[in-house]
Nucleic acid binder design. Sequence first.
DNA 1: TCAGCTCTTGAATGATATTCAACGACGTCT
DNA 2: AGACGTCGTTGAATATCATTCAAGAGCTGA
Lengths: 181, 181
Amino acid sequence: MPANKRQQGREEKRAELLAEARRLFIEDGYEATSMAALAKAAGVAGNTIYWYFTDKDDVLLAVLNAVLSDVLTDYRQVASAPLEDQLGWVVRQLQQMNRLVSTVHTRAALAPAIDEWHTHFHLITESLFRTALQQAGVDRASIDAEIKIGAFAIEGMLTHGLDDAQQRAICQRLAQQWTNG
Amino acid sequence: MPANKRQQGREEKRAELLAEARRLFIEDGYEATSMAALAKAAGVAGNTIYWYFTDKDDVLLAVLNAVLSDVLTDYRQVASAPLEDQLGWVVRQLQQMNRLVSTVHTRAALAPAIDEWHTHFHLITESLFRTALQQAGVDRASIDAEIKIGAFAIEGMLTHGLDDAQQRAICQRLAQQWTNG
DNA sequence: TCAGCTCTTGAATGATATTCAACGACGTCT
DNA sequence: AGACGTCGTTGAATATCATTCAAGAGCTGA
């Protein structure tokens, strides 16, 4: 739908492009999605995207924020569930963006904006993790290490295609570790 | 040193290019190293590399194998050390190729050859991990999960720039987990 | 109606990986 | 020694990217 010349608000059109980018980045991956392909999917000329985004990395940034925001919104509903279920839920949620995890790490080394987002992301998630572990009564001395281990385990499960049984076993083991002492 | 026209064996020259590629991929990263830059560093024309390697991914593959082979060779010397020290050693060793970890994950989605190497790599390392954990007397039921958790923790430590204290804390926590019951 | 801003676009530009076709040097067979 | 074919090298394409440029089209407010 190539439309805009003030009938459509700027934000609205940007959101359209963003939705298309999100779909393509998640389905095909960031590096496999060319700006031309994105433009065609959105029904605009190849360079129109640059009116709404400065960069391809800027598009990535927007997609990451959109997905993160959605996940964070839904998180409230399971924040009080048992730890193991929470873990499983998070992994299942993030699974949809598993291709983006490696991308973020690669781009972070090349684009400062992505690097910033990456550290910001870890700050947020590790903070959530911390309160969850504190509530579960994990030993204060080892809580920092546990947080990292948990975060890395999640990343690992996302980037390597594990089957459900393996995922459940890992979540179980981690949760067990935390609910004992 | 552009030399070869039979004075130098094919394998010898390939090794020269490989050494240069290894240096550049590790120092600057795979995606930041252009074939042109690699060629210039090796003192040959841009396309000469294609006489020795089929692809840029093929160069990556060779670099990965070279590094892995070196690390595996050195591993024997610490294979009998306490688990925590082993862990720390592995992390320190692999640290040199931390940029390559994300690269492997991204390229694995795009190049089948890299994907194959990646699964192969995990088979090898997890097998080593398994014997180490078995020797430490880790519970058989949870050993699979522990292996994955350990592998993911290592990957995480490599891809995220943790300071020494954090790394030590994580290795300690993992090892403690395994040396108890 | 005119001026100016917002969008859009086709056509550059520049970097990249990769391929092509020609050329030169080597080893070998005679 | 001379001819020939293979091996190695290269400069010049080609194709695909992301990104920029300059021109123009349409809306909006005077």
